[in-house]
Simulated assay, not measured.
Amino acid sequence: MAEKKDITEKPLFVSMFQEMFSLLSKLHRISEDLLSEAKSDITHSCWVILSIINREQEALSVPQIAELRSTSRQAVQRQICLLLEYGFIQPIDNPQNKRSPLYEVTEEGASYHQSLAEKIYGPWLDDIAKIMGTEDGENLLASIRQLDEALNTVAKKTEYPTK
């Protein structure tokens, strides 16, 4: 019985993931446009890494950021180098691993992050919130978390049958 259910629901989930990939591309493009209009020194990718480091209570290593971002350490390291050049983050010693420093936001980085958050993302998010409303926002957040959990569960599988 479960097999039949999977077959009938598969097109729904294919459509769902197609919509999400499209949505992620749109969000990335909108973020790049907002940063460009604000004459920001950083790209969307740097913004994401700066936001992760700024949000966390503890300093993070490149592998920890990569795991949070679900991306490669190399991709994170490129953004880390740029953020270091701008003085938005600083390395600190990692007692767990001498070759992998931890990174924390500098005062300048925190101020820059706050400024961008208020100047460009704040008004944009306010507009989205007005259109969606709190209830729809909460429902969407719950669905995203449920999907994240499903993805984590499925990611633990090592083999899928091929036909």
Rank of each mutant, 00 (worst) to 15 (best):
13 F>S: 00
156 K>L: 13
2 A>N: 14
24 L>D: 11
104 E>L: 10
136 D>S: 08
53 I>L: 08
150 A>Q: 13
86 Y>G: 06
55 R>P: 00
114 Q>S: 15
58 E>A: 08
122 G>D: 03
112 Y>M: 05
92 I>Q: 11
36 S>C: 04
13 F>N: 05
103 Y>L: 00
24 L>Y: 07
78 R>I: 07
81 C>F: 11
159 E>H: 07
40 S>T: 04
101 P>S: 04
157 K>M: 11
10 K>S: 10
63 P>L: 01
17 F>P: 01
38 A>T: 01
143 S>P: 00
102 L>T: 02
104 E>C: 12
48 V>A: 11
66 A>D: 04
10 K>C: 13
149 E>D: 08
107 E>T: 13
143 S>M: 10
81 C>P: 00
20 M>H: 09
160 Y>G: 11
111 S>M: 13
29 R>P: 00
57 Q>K: 15
100 S>R: 12
116 L>N: 01
155 A>D: 07
86 Y>I: 01
63 P>W: 02
32 E>W: 08
50 L>M: 02
127 D>V: 04
98 K>E: 09
140 L>V: 12
129 A>W: 09
64 Q>I: 06
126 D>L: 11
74 Q>G: 03
154 V>H: 07
151 L>T: 05
65 I>T: 05
51 S>C: 08
155 A>W: 03
117 A>M: 14
87 G>R: 02
79 Q>H: 06
90 Q>L: 13
109 G>Q: 02
40 S>W: 02
10 K>L: 13
94 N>T: 03
60 L>H: 01
98 K>N: 05
71 T>M: 04
82 L>A: 06
32 E>Y: 06
62 V>Q: 06
101 P>R: 07
144 I>E: 13
50 L>S: 03
13 F>M: 12
14 V>L: 05
32 E>D: 15
108 E>K: 09
91 P>Q: 12
109 G>C: 01
128 I>L: 15
118 E>Q: 13
157 K>Q: 13
74 Q>E: 05
64 Q>W: 01
10 K>I: 14
162 T>F: 09
10 K>N: 06
163 K>I: 10
138 E>C: 07
112 Y>A: 02
131 I>Q: 15
39 K>R: 15
93 D>Q: 14
117 A>D: 10
146 Q>S: 07
127 D>M: 14
4 K>D: 09
118 E>T: 15
23 L>R: 09
119 K>L: 06
128 I>D: 01
2 A>R: 08
20 M>L: 12
109 G>L: 03
93 D>V: 05
141 L>T: 08
86 Y>A: 10
131 I>L: 13
148 D>C: 09
45 S>E: 13
85 E>M: 06
65 I>V: 15
76 V>W: 02
42 I>D: 00
147 L>Y: 09
144 I>V: 09
